[in-house]
Design a protein around this nucleic acid. Structure first.
Lengths: 334, 334
DNA sequence: CTGTTAGCGCCTTCAC
DNA sequence: GTGAAGGCGCTAACAG
């Protein structure tokens, strides 16, 4: 296995200096067409490709953008990967995807690796508190948070679901539900705080009860599927649940194990779409984000920040509530 | 934003030569403890971290392993990412995940990028014919194919589902089904050829009919959901379908749109687990791969190949058939 | 044990 | 328009 050809080999073969080869590979116009052809021929014959490593060492940048996901199989963010990859590629960067597997320590390690690699920018779907921890680790590398944390100076994309989520809530209230729960992933602070208080207000105004509290947050769908059946059967149980899409499998499994049918015994709304929500019978009502829009906004903001410019403000209304078959009237005995 | 400290800065601060700093960062034992402490102090004070770029340029290797997935949201392979990442990290490598979005051209581009980056190895969940195209692009970089293509010399991991898939098939036959279909992703040749002929034999032996043909392969779940309802309603329709997990959403949506209930009107078996299969009501019978086992086998094989050794033969039985609620007797009118 | 030195492959002045 | 030379940050070989 002979080593890959270097710029020197090409230069030798084309009988020019390495600098000229460099100019050709970088599309410098000030090269005589004849020489350019000769160099290109040599490149082709040798199968030469410039080493990004050496190139980046020289240029002081890596040409890499990192995309760190809290959980790559999260149905909201996972599917953004192809889009983000394509957008960054068009901008001339290579995307490194990393998964933190819902483990903050792992997220820190991922970010440290990226910082060590001197990546040029990071798209972050955070687990750690963005405003305090992240800047230390990333040492000035531009980062965009997806979704963004409200009280933070940095670039962020607000995945605003307030309006649509409240629409889902209203749908349940209008169907007569008076005991509602909100099922979310533990530790995803910041983003949801505003939303939560708005929901609380709305529910109180309707004279209904918000039965979810800290015990309705879970770290994983497995934990969810395990603990939820009891909670769904307990007295004072909610008759309608709004669930983060990542926990929807747990919720539906729990409902099934508790012998409940959707929406006959339990009304369900999923915050964010997923294959499960689409394919379930009945199809689950969803608060649908504009995932493509979000990812392109994120990449766009990041590129802006990388240019040293000021990324603009967040777009607001990028979600809507889709009525399907999973919200119905309150079950008889409730 | 002052530039990050280099090895020189550290050397100057600790009043030693750069070589000594290098020895410290590489854990070379032949360094006087006192000096080592001084160097480490300087490193800490400056917040120095060696640049992998320069390091790799010097060492002629990148310390990176690439993981190229045909489709990151495929429920069989997508969830392997965290596992593969962890295993490669333990071996001292950084994992770059890339998604080909079911596009062979994109896969080629991804591999070219990795080759240009001089990655040390590649785990590939292939779209392109591994035996012909890949070696060109990868120019001698060790690669392990997941799953493996039967007639190919290279390292591969066989995701052997033959036994379990046949068990699923038998389950349908024993339930009296006489018209069966096999729903797969278009273009995933090689791997499934053997399996297909075995299924054909089994079905013929049972006096049943294999209704699926080329028209039962799709490129995406969307296409599947669109075209399948008509096929499920047509005369001579299958009463039982074995489906690749990636297409399961399409199948279930189609069934719902055709007004069919599982398993009353249609029996379903999913090849490979997924959240959907687990959470659906009724839960879908699955041919379950040992995903963790597969990914660790893949990484292990790759590391072996990277050491220049001969990776051993593939493990055989890493799948089993799990009976749940989605296979039932043949519907009355059929 | 530690300092010095010579590149790894490439880009970029700076002369010509 | 092109060649020569220096250096990006680091490691490895060789002196001392």
């Amino acid at each position: 296995m002979n080593p890959r050809p270097t710029i020197k080999d090409v230069a030798r073969r084309a009988k020019v200096a390495t600098g000229t080869v460099s100019r050709v590979t970088n599309g410098d116009a000030t090269v005589h067409p004849v020489i350019r052809d000769a160099v290109e021929a040599a490149i082709k014959e040798l199968g030469y490709r410039p080493s990004p490593i050496a190139r980046n060492l020289r240029r002081g940048r890596s040409g890499i953008i990192g995309f760190v996901l809290a959980d790559i199989s999260n149905p909201t963010y996972g599917p953004m990967v192809p889009e983000v990859q394509e957008l960054t590629r068009e901008a001339g960067y290579t995307l490194i995807v990393m998964d933190s597997a819902m483990d903050p320590e792992r997220e820190r390690r991922n970010l440290e690796t990226l910082a060590a690699l001197r990546v040029d920018g990071v798209v972050l779907n955070p687990l750690l508190p963005v405003d305090t921890e992240i800047p230390d680790v990333l040492q000035g590398i531009p980062v965009v948070s997806l979704p963004g944390v409200p009280d933070w100076e940095g670039a962020k994309v607000r995945a605003v679901s307030t309006h649509a989520t409240l629409a889902g809530l209203d749908d349940c209230l209008e169907n007569g539900h008076r005991r509602l729960a909100f099922l979310t992933i533990k530790g995803l602070g910041g983003t949801q705080r505003d939303l939560l208080s708005m929901m609380r207000d709305r529910i109180r105004a309707a004279g209904a009860t918000f039965v979810s509290d800290a015990s309705w947050t879970f770290v994983s769908r497995e934990q969810c599927a395990e603990q939820l059946p009891a909670m769904l059967a307990a007295p004072g149980r909610p008759t309608a649940v709004l669930s983060a899409s990542a926990l929807l499998p747990g919720l539906l499994i729990a409902a099934r194990e508790a012998g409940m049918k959707v929406p006959r015994d339990l009304s369900v709304v999923s915050i964010a779409t997923s294959e499960l929500a689409d394919a379930y019978d009945p199809p689950i009502n969803v608060v649908s984000f504009d995932a493509r829009g979000l990812s392109s906004e994120a990449v766009c903001k990041l590129l802006t920040a990388m240019r040293g410019e000021e990324p603009g403000e967040a777009v607001e209304n990028n979600s809507r509530y889709i009525r399907r078959g999973s919200v119905g009237p309150v079950p008889g005995e409730c």
